[in-house]
Design a protein around this nucleic acid. Structure first.
Length: 199
DNA sequence: CTAACGATTCGCT
DNA sequence: GCGAATCGTTAGT
């Protein structure tokens, strides 16, 4: 029996804390009947009310951001640069647009399928060390936007991988320079020493 | 309806 | 290191 994280995990009001807690958890996908999974090693926090790097800032509802305002534990997937599917987890209470971007995972199950989806020959860090890359490796596309992570297509599970708080490193977020002051917030979290994080 | 642009990646120099 | 690829979303005409 998989140990799926409960809704209450996502419903907490501190999106930064949730981002840290997600390091070491396992992201699983079952697409077209095939299963892949990876350990989350890199995340970023986005706050819809105080953070100008967030799509929903300053608390604007648009067709795209509707998912961010949905209930905690939903997947928010959107297309970036017309090419890349980026995967986020919706957190906080319904009506509050907070989310955690998953930026990198360490392949755990279905490695061959991930390599295949990425059109590569063998397993290497380039397979999943970026938000667009891991989405492709796990088979995540915008058609999964709004999927409940407590269902059976996409889940995040606790597999008792021990992560010490000392092993989590905070740094500036990537690719959000346009956000001015908020671009300097130390809201990116990586697993220290992991070769699977993005550069 | 039109135009500008992005929470990126990849290939070439 | 630099620039193109590529298209949905958004805001403005």
């Amino acid at each position: 029996m998989p140990n799926i994280l409960p809704r209450s995990f996502y419903e907490r009001d501190d999106v930064v804390q949730i981002s840290k807690d997600l390091i070491g958890k396992v992201l699983c996908s079952k697409i077209d009947g095939v299963y892949t999974a990876g350990v989350i090693v890199e995340t970023e926090a986005y706050n819809g009310r105080t953070d100008s790097a967030c799509h929903a800032f300053p608390d604007v509802r648009t067709p795209r951001t509707a998912t961010l305002y949905g209930k905690p534990g939903l997947a928010y997937v959107y297309l970036c640069y017309g090419i890349h599917h980026l995967f986020n987890v919706v957190t906080n209470k319904e009506g509050l647009a907070d989310a955690v971007l998953i930026r990198a995972v360490e392949p755990l199950e279905g490695e061959e399928l991930m390599v295949d989806r990425r059109d590569k020959k063998k397993l290497a860090h380039v397979i999943t060390n970026g938000p667009g890359k891991l989405s492709q490796a796990l088979g995540i596309t915008t058609s999964l936007n709004g999927t409940d992570l407590l269902g059976d297509t996409l889940t995040i599970e606790e597999r008792n991988i021990k992560i010490s708080q000392d092993d989590i490193e905070a740094s500036k977020r990537i690719g959000v320079d346009y956000a001015g002051e908020d671009a300097n917030l130390p809201w990116r979290f990586t697993l220290k020493g992991s070769k699977w994080v993005s550069k």
